[in-house]
Each structure stands twice: as structure tokens, then as C-alpha cells.
Design a protein around this nucleic acid. Structure first.
Lengths: 339, 339
DNA sequence: GAATTTTATGCAATCGATTGTTTCAGGATA
DNA sequence: TATCCTGAAACAATCGATTGCATAAAATTC
């Protein structure tokens, strides 16, 4: 039979009421052990599968958490989601995935849809060009736990899990200096986005701390794509300056540049050391393997999931105690940056 | 206010009943245009957000589709999910993601959990060591659309979307032959898994069709990891045979082997051409860029999503008309395999 | 043995939306 | 004017599980 059995079926089979069955299944203390056992046996016999939707309706909360990211199709995000799913599943939650495609409008629409699905919480890395955060108010007002990761904004009084871009950049730059680089170019993107601002700040501070003058003409801005990197690589070759190191805020731009240089190896005066950011899967496979700052996607996902579970278990504290977790990224040092 | 407004609030505001409001919102023909307009205005005014859970309970079906994959943390799967999500979202569905971690037990547990969440359908690429498909019966018996992709089994009378591994392998091997290879090694894994069996079959047929003798000692079995590939690469170097081509059923094994060969370049008698499978992101970044068979993750995701929507719209046809969609994979030819 | 507390269930309302079946008022028809 | 339609909205049941409150039976106390 495909007819789903309900607690009422169990109830009538046992000549008790549905409330008793419900309580028995939920291990309510006021139900006798004998009845609990009978209910459990009957449930198994009838192949009873609880209807979570009914419970969710009654309780006003489902066991589903919405995760909204720009795109799932990038290693960092899918890796974070991987960890979130693993942790939340063990806690009895499901994960709904939605993508904003970096569009604020889509983001708003998807958030609305998630709310309508009565999610128990929302985990979010928001769209790039977000300027207005009004739509988060709705979530907070309804006391639905909201956790941000990767991308966030200072103005938001919300739990956040990020890596310390500044430290990562600082250490990467320092590593280049310690490996003999004295003239280091920085590939960056618009300072509108905090992660790039922070990475630039780390780069600058590292130089200064090591007594190297910061030169604006060594800070190159682009969209940091592979193609951008390729152009920047050619620019490196044509520069009169004796650049001997590159700290790129993106792995893609870094390997684009390395590609350009390899293509014209003859022109190289001296070798240029490279350090990237994100530790994309391919960094270890290219030639030479690219040193990179690892964003700790695994830990981030776990932290985010745990933060959510804490919120769910202590809903009373509300937004009063917003927590910002900052993970220190890890340098993955490979041959591209070493002597 | 964080109090959610319901159709009853709208109803009492307008002095009509909830049923009228419900029908108005659903654009029911028996509701006058005037009322519809009034309801819509009131809904907007009260910031009404429908409670999907309540609707799902009443209708016995939610607008959520469960996607169960071995892991989301691999490019192929996250890419497929990316496309599924995009298509199903436009159709008003959500996507729940779950991972089986290639464990049949976990797979069964997650399927059960998805059923309890009252999903409208299930999209699945099942765990490797699956031998028993009893747990799918449940899904089918309940008339819940079930779509398999990537991995499947002939015994299952279920909609399926796969790529033609045989053709992909055949064409890749043929490409190597056309580029001058006469002694081609094949990296494979256990023939228990149909995709590897098919790829081997394609390799063998291509050789025969081109008058090249198939030699069992040129078919090398492993788990196809990067490390396995590295070992196989060393074996290539030490082999007395004059191997001049490798068709690997996995990109990872291919680049592992290429790595090993690069490490000992001096020993190379003649260059070996490589062809991989899966078209992982990194294939284009390594040196030389690796030719590979693309698995069409994007198309697969779209096909799967559309197949689901068809099933949902024509539930009557049941399993009678099981459809198997076979996509022809695309060769991505790069320099690793060319003269 | 009566009174009181405990324990284990039953009863009934509820969550919010949907839907088959009336009901009613106004219009058309004879 | 009486009858019949018909369109529009009301009524009421329902989906399945949960839960505050009431209650009966058993256990305890005096």
C-alpha cells in the first residue's frame, strides 16, 4: 500500500488516542513505558513515517535551514555547504540551497521564498553589490536565526563567521619578503568589497613592517579573472621595474599571470615569486604549484552550523549578543613562492 | 510586528471568509475580479506571506525537491546541482541537498529523511557500493517522482539521465590514435561500476576498429586517485614497452601520471600523450593543459530538472514510460593529446 | 475507608491553507 | 409574479501532529 500511516492508525490499532501515540513517540515522561513499547512496536509494524510537515505547521518551525550563496558552483561555497550539511544533518536538520547569482534582487526574492518555506534559520553569504540591508530586518524581526559567512557588513548586528583576510594577506606578503622579494606587486579588486580592502591593508602593513616602501604604482586593480591575470602578467614583463614578487588577492589572476610569463619565458630578467588567495583545487596541480592562502571552508562551514544550532537552542538571547567569529587563514606554501 | 499575518487576518479585515481569500489569492475563476483586487491590496497592506507548510500539509505535497548525491564537494556534482536549482527555482520549487558520502546506509537514512520532509520528488546519484535497491521501491510506490543521474542501474525502472561513457571513451581513444598513438595504456577502476566498464569498452572498441591489438597488460586498474596516477606514471617510465598514449578514466590519475613523468623528464624516450575524463576545472590550468571528456554537468542538471517537472505535471503515466536520457559527452581537446 | 496525590490517558482545540458542498441574492425566464 | 439559474461567497471538514487542560484509575496518606 502506498497509503501513509499516521498516528491515528497506530492509535486505533492500539485503542488509545492520537495524543498518546504522539507523546509516546516523543518519549514524553508522562507516558508509561509499557505503552511506549506498544506504540513503538505498532509503529514499526505499520511502517509509520512521521509527517514532518504536520509537526512543522503545529510548531511553527520546520527542521529546514536555508543556505543562500552567490553560487554553489565554486569550490569555496560548495565546500562550506558540504560541511554545513554534514553538521546540521546530525542535528536532524535539512539544508535548502539557494543561489543569488550575486544579484541583490534575486537575493531578496530567494530570501522571501526561504521565509515562506518556514525555514528554521538562514545562513547567508550575500550578493556582491549589496548596498541595502533592509531585507535582513524581516528575518531578524521574526527571530529567525541568521548567520553570515565570508561576506558581511559591519553595519549588520548579526552572527558572522569570516576569515581574517588582513592576517592572511599580511602573512603571505611577509612570506614573500622572507623569501627574498623586495619589489612586490599586489593584484587587487575594488576596495568597495571589504575582503579586498583587508587584503590590501595586510599587504601594505607587511611591507611597512619590513621597511619596504609602499608604492601605489605596484598595486594593480582588476576583476581578478584568469584573463585579467594574463594581461597583468604581460604588464609584469614589460615593466621596467624589477618586480620580483606578486601577491594576488585571487588564485585565478595569479595563474593567469604565471601563464603569460611562461609563454614568454625568454623575456624574463629574473624569476618572479607568486602567492595567491583562496587555495583553489587547481593551485596544487599547476606548474609550479601555487602558494595560496587557504580560506578554511571546512572550518567555516562547521562554525556556521554550530553557531546556528546555538541560536536555535537559546532563542531568548536575541541579537543582543551578536558574535563575530574570525578564523585565521592558513598559508599553503608551495614552490611558486620559494627560493 | 513579527506576528505573521494569515489569510484569516485578510479575511476579517475584508469581512469575507478565509476560503474566499484563499481562492482569490490563487486566482480561482469563481471569485469576482473586484474581490480579487481587494484581497490583493489587503494582502500587500498587511505584508502577507503565505505559509507554504500549511499548504503542503493540506495538499500532501511540498514544493521541495530532494537532491541526494555522494558529495556536494566535487565539481561535477555541485555543478549539476547548480543547474537543477536554477531550473527548479523558476518553477517555484526549492532544492534540499543531502549527501550520502558513498555509504549505502547513509543513503537509506537520508532518503527516509527526505521522504519525511514530504519532498515532491527525489533526484539521486547513488552511493558507489549499492547492491540492493529495495529502498527505492518505497519512493516509487508512493508515486514520488524519482530521477537518477550519473550513476544508475539497469535493473531500475526509473527515469535516468546519464552521459554515454562508452562514446566518450571511444572518441577519446580514437583521438589519441588519430594523433599518432599506437600503444595506448588505459587507466581504469573496478568493472563493478558501470561507468568504468563502459569506458573500458569504448577504449577497447576504438582500438579494434582501428586495427590495433588490445593488450590486457596495457589496462591498468587502480582507484584512480592522484597518488595512484603518480605510481602509474612511474610504471610508464619503467615499462619496456614503448607506450605513447594514455587514456585515463579519471583526470586525477592522468595528472598524477603526468606529474611523475615531468619529475623524471630525462628518462623519457618519447613523449606520451594524455587524455582524461571529467574535465575537472584544473585540467585547463596544468602544463600541458589536459585533454578531457566533458561530462556535461550543466546539461545533465537541466535535463534532470525538466524530467522532474514533466513527471510532476503528468503523474498519471506512472512508471510505465520510464525514460532514459543519454547525453553524448564532449571532447575538450587541449595540448596534452595533440601532436 | 475516605481523602488526597500521582500517574497515565483522553478530549478537544490548534497550526494555516485548501476544497467539496451548501447558501443566498440578483437576474433571467415563463 | 412565481420559478429557475447562476455567479459569488460562506460553511465546514480536512491534512497530521502537538499540547493545555480535564479526568479516570491507581497509589498513597491519614
Amino acid at each position: 500500500m502506498s497509503d501513509k500511516t499516521t498516528i491515528h492508525d497506530i492509535a486505533s490499532m492500539l485503542r488509545v488516542t492520537a495524543s498518546t501515540v504522539s507523546r509516546a513517540l516523543n518519549d514524553h515522561p508522562k507516558i508509561s513505558d509499557a505503552t511506549k513499547r506498544r506504540v513503538l512496536t505498532a509503529a514499526k509494524k505499520l511502517n509509520y513515517q512521521p509527517n514532518n510537515i504536520a509537526a512543522a505547521l503545529r510548531q511553527g518551525k520546520s527542521k529546514v535551514v536555508g543556505v543562500l550563496v552567490p553560487t554553489i558552483d565554486r569550490h569555496y561555497f560548495s565546500s562550506v555547504i558540504h560541511s554545513i550539511e554534514a553538521v546540521l544533518n546530525d542535528a536532524g536538520y535539512h539544508v535548502i540551497v539557494a543561489q543569488s547569482h550575486d544579484s541583490p534582487e534575486l537575493e531578496r526574492a530567494k530570501l522571501k521564498a526561504l521565509m515562506q518555506a518556514q525555514v528554521a534559520g538562514i545562513i547567508l553569504s550575500f550578493a556582491k553589490q549589496n548596498t541595502d540591508f533592509e531585507h535582513f530586518k524581516d528575518i531578524i524581526d521574526r527571530d529567525i536565526p541568521l548567520i553570515l559567512f565570508d561576506r558581511y557588513h559591519e553595519s549588520l548586528e548579526v552572527d558572522t563567521v569570516v576569515i581574517d583576510d588582513y592576517i592572511g594577506a599580511y602573512k603571505a606578503t611577509e612570506h614573500l619578503i622572507e623569501n627574498g622579494c623586495t619589489s612586490i606587486v599586489h593584484f587587487t579588486s575594488t576596495s568597495q568589497i571589504s575582503i579586498y580592502k583587508e587584503r590590501k591593508r595586510g599587504y601594505i602593513d607587511a611591507l611597512q613592517r619590513h621597511g619596504i616602501a609602499v608604492q601605489d604604482e605596484l598595486i594593480w586593480e582588476s576583476h581578478l579573472t584568469l584573463e585579467d591575470g594574463f594581461e597583468l602578467g604581460n604588464r609584469l614583463l614589460s615593466e621596467s621595474k624589477a618586480v620580483d614578487g606578486v601577491f594576488s588577492a585571487s588564485d585565478f589572476a595569479a595563474i593567469g599571470a604565471m601563464q603569460a610569463i611562461k609563454d614568454q619565458k625568454g623575456n624574463m630578467v629574473r624569476p618572479i615569486k607568486f602567492f595567491g588567495f583562496s587555495n583553489e583545487t587547481f593551485t596544487q596541480f599547476i606548474d609550479p604549484p601555487l602558494s595560496s592562502v587557504d580560506q578554511l571552508s571546512h572550518s567555516t562551514g562547521e562554525m556556521v552550523a554550530h553557531r546556528f544550532l546555538e541560536r536555535i537552542q537559546h532563542p531568548h538571547q536575541k541579537s543582543l549578543t551578536m558574535q563575530k567569529t574570525v578564523l585565521t587563514p592558513k598559508l599553503c606554501i608551495r614552490s611558486s613562492s620559494q627560493k
